[in-house]
Design a protein around this nucleic acid. Sequence first.
DNA 1: CAATAGTGTGTACAGACGTACACAGTAGGG
DNA 2: CCCTACTGTGTACGTCTGTACACACTATTG
Lengths: 187, 187
Amino acid sequence: MGGSRRVGNDPRRKDRILAAALEVIGERGVHRTTHRAIAQRAAVPLGSLTYHFDGLQAILEQAFAHLARTMSEHYGSRLAAARDREQACEAVVDLICGPEYATPRQFVLLFEMYSYANHNDAARKAVREWMAVSRNSLAAHFPPEACRALDAMVEGWSMHRHFERDGGGPDRDLVSAAVTAVADRLG
Amino acid sequence: MGGSRRVGNDPRRKDRILAAALEVIGERGVHRTTHRAIAQRAAVPLGSLTYHFDGLQAILEQAFAHLARTMSEHYGSRLAAARDREQACEAVVDLICGPEYATPRQFVLLFEMYSYANHNDAARKAVREWMAVSRNSLAAHFPPEACRALDAMVEGWSMHRHFERDGGGPDRDLVSAAVTAVADRLG
DNA sequence: CAATAGTGTGTACAGACGTACACAGTAGGG
DNA sequence: CCCTACTGTGTACGTCTGTACACACTATTG
Protein backbone atom coordinates (compact mmCIF):
# COMPACT_ATOMS: atom_id res chain seq x y z
CA MET A 1 0.00 0.00 0.00
CA GLY A 2 1.91 2.99 -1.22
CA GLY A 3 5.41 2.06 -0.15
CA SER A 4 7.61 -0.39 -1.92
CA ARG A 5 8.44 -1.98 1.39
CA ARG A 6 6.39 -4.81 2.79
CA VAL A 7 4.89 -4.69 6.21
CA GLY A 8 5.27 -7.48 8.73
CA ASN A 9 2.28 -9.33 10.07
CA ASP A 10 2.84 -8.23 13.61
CA PRO A 11 4.51 -4.85 13.82
CA ARG A 12 4.07 -4.76 17.58
CA ARG A 13 6.03 -7.93 18.05
CA LYS A 14 9.27 -6.16 18.80
CA ASP A 15 7.67 -4.23 21.63
CA ARG A 16 5.98 -7.34 22.93
CA ILE A 17 9.33 -9.05 23.08
CA LEU A 18 10.86 -6.15 24.96
CA ALA A 19 7.97 -6.13 27.41
CA ALA A 20 8.38 -9.85 27.92
CA ALA A 21 12.10 -9.35 28.45
CA LEU A 22 11.40 -6.88 31.25
CA GLU A 23 9.03 -9.34 32.87
CA VAL A 24 11.60 -12.10 32.79
CA ILE A 25 14.30 -9.79 34.10
CA GLY A 26 12.02 -8.74 36.92
CA GLU A 27 11.23 -12.31 37.91
CA ARG A 28 14.56 -13.99 37.42
CA GLY A 29 17.15 -11.24 37.22
CA VAL A 30 19.46 -10.49 34.32
CA HIS A 31 21.53 -13.49 35.32
CA ARG A 32 19.23 -16.34 34.29
CA THR A 33 17.46 -14.31 31.65
CA THR A 34 17.60 -16.32 28.44
CA HIS A 35 16.31 -16.17 24.89
CA ARG A 36 14.04 -19.10 25.56
CA ALA A 37 12.50 -17.66 28.70
CA ILE A 38 11.72 -14.40 26.90
CA ALA A 39 10.32 -16.19 23.87
CA GLN A 40 8.05 -18.31 26.00
CA ARG A 41 6.85 -15.32 27.98
CA ALA A 42 6.13 -13.35 24.81
CA ALA A 43 4.55 -16.42 23.20
CA VAL A 44 6.71 -16.12 20.12
CA PRO A 45 9.00 -18.70 18.56
CA LEU A 46 12.62 -18.74 19.57
CA GLY A 47 13.81 -17.76 16.12
CA SER A 48 11.80 -14.58 16.35
CA LEU A 49 14.24 -13.15 18.87
CA THR A 50 17.27 -13.63 16.69
CA TYR A 51 15.31 -12.27 13.77
CA HIS A 52 14.39 -9.00 15.46
CA PHE A 53 17.45 -8.50 17.63
CA ASP A 54 21.18 -8.90 17.21
CA GLY A 55 21.69 -11.07 20.25
CA LEU A 56 20.63 -11.14 23.85
CA GLN A 57 22.70 -8.12 24.73
CA ALA A 58 20.74 -6.02 22.25
CA ILE A 59 17.48 -7.17 23.78
CA LEU A 60 18.60 -6.17 27.25
CA GLU A 61 19.88 -2.81 26.07
CA GLN A 62 16.65 -1.93 24.31
CA ALA A 63 14.53 -3.28 27.15
CA PHE A 64 16.36 -1.06 29.63
CA ALA A 65 16.12 1.91 27.29
CA HIS A 66 12.38 1.34 27.21
CA LEU A 67 12.26 1.07 30.98
CA ALA A 68 14.16 4.33 31.40
CA ARG A 69 11.76 6.10 29.09
CA THR A 70 8.71 4.78 30.92
CA MET A 71 10.05 5.74 34.31
CA SER A 72 11.03 9.19 33.10
CA GLU A 73 7.54 9.85 31.85
CA HIS A 74 5.97 8.71 35.06
CA TYR A 75 8.34 10.70 37.21
CA GLY A 76 7.89 13.76 35.04
CA SER A 77 4.12 13.65 34.89
CA ARG A 78 3.83 13.36 38.66
CA LEU A 79 5.95 16.47 39.11
CA ALA A 80 4.36 18.39 36.25
CA ALA A 81 1.03 18.17 38.06
CA ALA A 82 2.35 20.40 40.83
CA ARG A 83 1.39 24.06 40.57
CA ASP A 84 3.53 25.59 43.29
CA ARG A 85 6.45 24.65 45.42
CA GLU A 86 4.34 23.22 48.18
CA GLN A 87 2.64 20.85 45.78
CA ALA A 88 6.01 20.03 44.30
CA CYS A 89 7.29 19.01 47.72
CA GLU A 90 4.23 16.87 48.18
CA ALA A 91 4.91 15.26 44.83
CA VAL A 92 8.46 14.47 45.91
CA VAL A 93 7.14 12.89 49.09
CA ASP A 94 4.76 10.86 46.96
CA LEU A 95 7.58 9.66 44.78
CA ILE A 96 9.36 8.41 47.87
CA CYS A 97 6.42 7.00 49.80
CA GLY A 98 3.63 6.52 47.34
CA PRO A 99 2.96 3.15 45.82
CA GLU A 100 2.80 4.63 42.34
CA TYR A 101 6.41 5.29 41.52
CA ALA A 102 7.83 2.88 43.99
CA THR A 103 6.11 -0.25 42.81
CA PRO A 104 8.28 -3.24 43.75
CA ARG A 105 8.41 -4.44 40.19
CA GLN A 106 9.88 -1.17 38.92
CA PHE A 107 12.38 -1.15 41.74
CA VAL A 108 13.63 -4.57 40.92
CA LEU A 109 13.99 -3.57 37.29
CA LEU A 110 15.73 -0.36 38.26
CA PHE A 111 18.35 -2.25 40.21
CA GLU A 112 18.83 -4.68 37.39
CA MET A 113 19.39 -1.74 35.07
CA TYR A 114 21.85 -0.07 37.42
CA SER A 115 23.92 -3.17 37.90
CA TYR A 116 23.86 -4.00 34.22
CA ALA A 117 24.82 -0.42 33.38
CA ASN A 118 28.15 -0.90 35.11
CA HIS A 119 29.11 -3.46 32.50
CA ASN A 120 27.35 -2.16 29.38
CA ASP A 121 27.71 1.22 27.69
CA ALA A 122 24.25 1.40 26.18
CA ALA A 123 22.63 0.67 29.51
CA ARG A 124 24.87 3.21 31.18
CA LYS A 125 23.66 5.80 28.70
CA ALA A 126 20.06 4.89 29.49
CA VAL A 127 20.72 5.31 33.20
CA ARG A 128 22.34 8.69 32.70
CA GLU A 129 19.46 9.91 30.59
CA TRP A 130 16.94 8.71 33.13
CA MET A 131 18.78 10.52 35.88
CA ALA A 132 19.05 13.68 33.83
CA VAL A 133 15.35 13.65 33.03
CA SER A 134 14.32 13.04 36.60
CA ARG A 135 16.39 15.99 37.71
CA ASN A 136 15.01 18.14 34.94
CA SER A 137 11.52 17.35 36.12
CA LEU A 138 12.44 18.82 39.48
CA ALA A 139 14.00 21.85 37.84
CA ALA A 140 10.59 23.31 37.05
CA HIS A 141 10.00 23.87 40.76
CA PHE A 142 13.40 24.13 42.45
CA PRO A 143 16.79 25.70 41.83
CA PRO A 144 19.49 23.39 40.47
CA GLU A 145 21.16 22.81 43.83
CA ALA A 146 17.95 21.70 45.45
CA CYS A 147 17.26 19.42 42.48
CA ARG A 148 20.48 17.54 43.06
CA ALA A 149 19.74 17.04 46.71
CA LEU A 150 16.08 16.15 46.31
CA ASP A 151 16.74 13.76 43.48
CA ALA A 152 19.33 11.98 45.58
CA MET A 153 16.90 11.78 48.46
CA VAL A 154 14.17 10.32 46.30
CA GLU A 155 16.51 7.68 44.97
CA GLY A 156 18.10 6.73 48.24
CA TRP A 157 15.08 6.86 50.45
CA SER A 158 12.67 5.03 48.21
CA MET A 159 15.25 2.35 47.72
CA HIS A 160 15.77 1.92 51.45
CA ARG A 161 12.04 1.63 51.87
CA HIS A 162 11.98 -0.97 49.16
CA PHE A 163 14.40 -3.20 51.02
CA GLU A 164 13.02 -2.66 54.48
CA ARG A 165 9.56 -3.54 53.41
CA ASP A 166 7.81 -3.04 56.72
CA GLY A 167 5.78 -0.20 58.10
CA GLY A 168 5.64 1.86 54.95
CA GLY A 169 3.08 4.28 56.27
CA PRO A 170 4.25 6.34 59.22
CA ASP A 171 7.33 7.51 57.39
CA ARG A 172 5.38 10.08 55.46
CA ASP A 173 5.65 12.92 57.94
CA LEU A 174 9.33 12.34 58.42
CA VAL A 175 9.97 12.27 54.69
CA SER A 176 7.96 15.43 54.31
CA ALA A 177 10.01 17.19 56.99
CA ALA A 178 13.28 16.21 55.38
CA VAL A 179 12.13 17.26 51.92
CA THR A 180 10.96 20.68 53.04
CA ALA A 181 14.13 21.11 55.07
CA VAL A 182 16.23 20.65 51.96
CA ALA A 183 13.89 22.64 49.74
CA ASP A 184 13.87 25.57 52.17
CA ARG A 185 17.59 25.67 52.81
CA LEU A 186 18.66 25.17 49.23
CA GLY A 187 15.77 26.97 47.64
CA MET B 1 47.60 -31.45 67.67
CA GLY B 2 44.84 -31.56 70.24
CA GLY B 3 41.83 -32.13 68.02
CA SER B 4 40.94 -35.32 66.29
CA ARG B 5 40.16 -33.34 63.19
CA ARG B 6 42.76 -32.80 60.53
CA VAL B 7 43.62 -29.39 59.24
CA GLY B 8 43.62 -28.49 55.58
CA ASN B 9 46.72 -27.33 53.81
CA ASP B 10 45.33 -23.95 52.97
CA PRO B 11 42.79 -22.73 55.51
CA ARG B 12 42.60 -19.34 53.84
CA ARG B 13 41.51 -20.85 50.56
CA LYS B 14 37.82 -20.32 51.20
CA ASP B 15 38.37 -16.62 51.76
CA ARG B 16 40.59 -16.38 48.74
CA ILE B 17 37.85 -17.88 46.64
CA LEU B 18 35.32 -15.42 47.99
CA ALA B 19 37.66 -12.53 47.30
CA ALA B 20 38.18 -13.78 43.77
CA ALA B 21 34.43 -14.12 43.35
CA LEU B 22 33.98 -10.46 44.25
CA GLU B 23 36.63 -9.49 41.74
CA VAL B 24 34.95 -11.42 38.98
CA ILE B 25 31.54 -10.04 39.91
CA GLY B 26 32.96 -6.54 39.83
CA GLU B 27 34.51 -6.99 36.43
CA ARG B 28 31.88 -9.03 34.66
CA GLY B 29 28.71 -8.73 36.70
CA VAL B 30 26.79 -11.54 38.35
CA HIS B 31 25.47 -12.53 34.97
CA ARG B 32 28.60 -13.98 33.36
CA THR B 33 30.16 -14.92 36.67
CA THR B 34 31.10 -18.59 36.44
CA HIS B 35 32.85 -21.24 38.48
CA ARG B 36 35.68 -21.32 35.99
CA ALA B 37 36.26 -17.58 35.99
CA ILE B 38 36.41 -17.51 39.79
CA ALA B 39 38.71 -20.52 39.94
CA GLN B 40 41.09 -18.99 37.44
CA ARG B 41 41.11 -15.67 39.28
CA ALA B 42 41.78 -17.36 42.60
CA ALA B 43 44.36 -19.64 41.01
CA VAL B 44 42.73 -22.76 42.40
CA PRO B 45 41.50 -25.81 40.54
CA LEU B 46 37.92 -25.93 39.42
CA GLY B 47 37.07 -28.81 41.73
CA SER B 48 38.09 -26.71 44.69
CA LEU B 49 34.99 -24.59 44.33
CA THR B 50 32.58 -27.49 44.46
CA TYR B 51 34.57 -28.90 47.35
CA HIS B 52 34.28 -25.80 49.51
CA PHE B 53 30.88 -24.55 48.40
CA ASP B 54 27.51 -26.08 47.64
CA GLY B 55 27.13 -24.53 44.23
CA LEU B 56 27.57 -21.16 42.61
CA GLN B 57 24.64 -19.67 44.45
CA ALA B 58 26.34 -20.38 47.78
CA ILE B 59 29.49 -18.67 46.60
CA LEU B 60 27.59 -15.55 45.60
CA GLU B 61 25.67 -15.48 48.86
CA GLN B 62 28.78 -15.75 50.99
CA ALA B 63 30.69 -13.31 48.82
CA PHE B 64 27.97 -10.72 49.25
CA ALA B 65 27.77 -11.39 52.97
CA HIS B 66 31.49 -10.70 53.13
CA LEU B 67 31.06 -7.52 51.11
CA ALA B 68 28.31 -6.27 53.42
CA ARG B 69 30.49 -6.87 56.45
CA THR B 70 33.44 -5.04 54.93
CA MET B 71 31.35 -2.07 53.92
CA SER B 72 29.68 -1.90 57.32
CA GLU B 73 33.03 -1.77 59.06
CA HIS B 74 34.31 0.94 56.81
CA TYR B 75 31.17 3.01 57.11
CA GLY B 76 31.11 2.56 60.86
CA SER B 77 34.74 3.39 61.46
CA ARG B 78 34.51 6.60 59.46
CA LEU B 79 31.58 7.75 61.57
CA ALA B 80 33.03 6.52 64.85
CA ALA B 81 35.95 8.88 64.35
CA ALA B 82 33.67 11.88 64.72
CA ARG B 83 33.64 13.48 68.16
CA ASP B 84 30.75 15.90 67.83
CA ARG B 85 27.87 16.56 65.52
CA GLU B 86 29.83 18.89 63.32
CA GLN B 87 32.45 16.25 62.71
CA ALA B 88 29.72 13.73 62.14
CA CYS B 89 28.23 15.90 59.43
CA GLU B 90 31.64 16.18 57.85
CA ALA B 91 31.96 12.42 57.95
CA VAL B 92 28.64 12.07 56.17
CA VAL B 93 29.79 14.48 53.51
CA ASP B 94 32.95 12.43 53.15
CA LEU B 95 30.95 9.28 52.71
CA ILE B 96 29.09 10.93 49.85
CA CYS B 97 31.94 12.78 48.19
CA GLY B 98 35.13 11.21 49.42
CA PRO B 99 36.91 8.66 47.35
CA GLU B 100 37.24 6.29 50.29
CA TYR B 101 33.76 4.93 50.68
CA ALA B 102 32.68 5.65 47.16
CA THR B 103 35.33 3.74 45.32
CA PRO B 104 33.92 2.71 41.93
CA ARG B 105 34.70 -0.92 42.57
CA GLN B 106 32.64 -1.01 45.75
CA PHE B 107 29.80 0.76 44.03
CA VAL B 108 29.67 -1.75 41.25
CA LEU B 109 29.64 -4.54 43.79
CA LEU B 110 26.97 -2.82 45.82
CA PHE B 111 24.67 -2.64 42.82
CA GLU B 112 25.31 -6.25 42.01
CA MET B 113 24.37 -7.14 45.56
CA TYR B 114 21.21 -5.05 45.49
CA SER B 115 20.00 -6.53 42.23
CA TYR B 116 20.88 -10.04 43.28
CA ALA B 117 19.15 -9.50 46.62
CA ASN B 118 15.84 -9.11 44.84
CA HIS B 119 16.05 -12.72 43.73
CA ASN B 120 17.86 -14.37 46.63
CA ASP B 121 16.89 -14.47 50.28
CA ALA B 122 20.38 -14.77 51.74
CA ALA B 123 21.57 -11.77 49.77
CA ARG B 124 18.49 -9.84 50.81
CA LYS B 125 19.35 -10.56 54.41
CA ALA B 126 22.88 -9.29 53.84
CA VAL B 127 21.53 -6.09 52.32
CA ARG B 128 19.16 -5.52 55.23
CA GLU B 129 21.92 -6.03 57.76
CA TRP B 130 24.21 -3.69 55.90
CA MET B 131 21.53 -1.03 55.87
CA ALA B 132 20.74 -1.52 59.54
CA VAL B 133 24.40 -1.23 60.50
CA SER B 134 24.96 1.87 58.42
CA ARG B 135 22.03 3.52 60.10
CA ASN B 136 23.20 2.41 63.53
CA SER B 137 26.53 4.05 62.84
CA LEU B 138 24.72 7.31 62.35
CA ALA B 139 22.69 6.78 65.50
CA ALA B 140 25.65 7.64 67.70
CA HIS B 141 25.47 11.22 66.48
CA PHE B 142 21.91 11.89 65.34
CA PRO B 143 18.37 11.09 66.46
CA PRO B 144 16.64 8.22 64.67
CA GLU B 145 14.66 10.43 62.29
CA ALA B 146 17.76 12.22 61.07
CA CYS B 147 19.50 8.87 60.64
CA ARG B 148 16.86 7.70 58.24
CA ALA B 149 17.10 10.82 56.16
CA LEU B 150 20.88 11.09 56.19
CA ASP B 151 21.36 7.45 55.37
CA ALA B 152 19.04 7.80 52.40
CA MET B 153 20.93 10.86 51.25
CA VAL B 154 24.26 9.10 51.47
CA GLU B 155 22.97 6.18 49.44
CA GLY B 156 21.18 8.18 46.79
CA TRP B 157 23.66 10.96 46.35
CA SER B 158 26.79 8.89 46.23
CA MET B 159 25.15 6.63 43.73
CA HIS B 160 24.16 9.52 41.50
CA ARG B 161 27.70 10.77 41.64
CA HIS B 162 28.91 7.33 40.71
CA PHE B 163 26.91 7.33 37.50
CA GLU B 164 27.49 10.92 36.53
CA ARG B 165 31.19 10.52 36.82
CA ASP B 166 32.18 14.08 35.95
CA GLY B 167 33.10 17.03 38.10
CA GLY B 168 33.22 15.20 41.39
CA GLY B 169 34.80 18.08 43.27
CA PRO B 170 32.65 21.18 43.46
CA ASP B 171 29.71 19.28 44.85
CA ARG B 172 31.17 19.25 48.31
CA ASP B 173 29.76 22.54 49.53
CA LEU B 174 26.35 21.72 48.21
CA VAL B 175 26.36 18.31 49.83
CA SER B 176 27.48 19.87 53.07
CA ALA B 177 24.64 22.37 52.97
CA ALA B 178 22.06 19.68 52.36
CA VAL B 179 23.43 17.45 55.10
CA THR B 180 23.43 20.19 57.70
CA ALA B 181 19.98 21.30 56.60
CA VAL B 182 18.62 17.85 57.34
CA ALA B 183 20.67 17.42 60.51
CA ASP B 184 19.51 20.76 61.86
CA ARG B 185 15.84 20.35 61.04
CA LEU B 186 15.55 16.76 62.17
CA GLY B 187 18.08 16.97 64.96
C1' DC C 1 -1.00 -16.79 -13.17
C1' DA C 2 4.18 -17.02 -12.48
C1' DA C 3 8.05 -14.75 -10.54
C1' DT C 4 10.07 -12.62 -6.70
C1' DA C 5 11.58 -10.51 -2.66
C1' DG C 6 11.16 -9.99 1.83
C1' DT C 7 9.08 -11.94 6.44
C1' DG C 8 9.15 -15.17 9.80
C1' DT C 9 10.10 -19.99 11.93
C1' DG C 10 11.72 -24.67 13.35
C1' DT C 11 15.73 -26.99 14.07
C1' DA C 12 20.36 -28.11 14.54
C1' DC C 13 24.93 -27.30 16.39
C1' DA C 14 29.03 -26.01 18.75
C1' DG C 15 30.37 -24.41 22.93
C1' DA C 16 30.12 -23.32 27.80
C1' DC C 17 28.16 -24.28 31.94
C1' DG C 18 27.28 -26.47 36.80
C1' DT C 19 28.12 -30.36 39.17
C1' DA C 20 29.38 -35.12 40.55
C1' DC C 21 32.75 -38.36 41.55
C1' DA C 22 36.55 -41.63 41.15
C1' DC C 23 40.91 -41.09 42.49
C1' DA C 24 45.42 -39.31 44.38
C1' DG C 25 47.81 -37.40 48.17
C1' DT C 26 48.91 -36.98 53.07
C1' DA C 27 49.13 -36.71 57.98
C1' DG C 28 48.36 -39.10 62.22
C1' DG C 29 47.31 -43.74 65.02
C1' DG C 30 48.70 -48.41 66.12
C1' DC D 1 56.04 -49.82 59.23
C1' DC D 2 50.99 -50.23 57.46
C1' DC D 3 46.44 -48.68 57.91
C1' DT D 4 42.91 -45.38 58.02
C1' DA D 5 40.44 -41.35 57.53
C1' DC D 6 40.22 -37.20 55.56
C1' DT D 7 41.54 -33.34 52.24
C1' DG D 8 41.76 -31.92 47.83
C1' DT D 9 41.87 -32.41 42.47
C1' DG D 10 41.31 -33.59 37.48
C1' DT D 11 38.09 -35.04 34.48
C1' DA D 12 33.96 -36.39 32.49
C1' DC D 13 28.98 -35.90 31.78
C1' DG D 14 24.41 -34.25 30.91
C1' DT D 15 22.14 -30.01 30.30
C1' DC D 16 21.32 -25.58 28.71
C1' DT D 17 22.69 -21.69 26.15
C1' DG D 18 23.28 -18.34 22.11
C1' DT D 19 23.11 -18.23 17.48
C1' DA D 20 22.97 -19.46 12.57
C1' DC D 21 20.49 -20.89 8.73
C1' DA D 22 17.82 -23.63 5.49
C1' DC D 23 13.29 -23.52 4.62
C1' DA D 24 8.24 -22.15 4.33
C1' DC D 25 5.02 -18.60 3.73
C1' DT D 26 2.77 -14.42 1.87
C1' DA D 27 1.86 -10.44 -0.56
C1' DT D 28 3.16 -7.68 -4.15
C1' DT D 29 4.69 -7.01 -9.11
C1' DG D 30 4.58 -7.77 -13.98
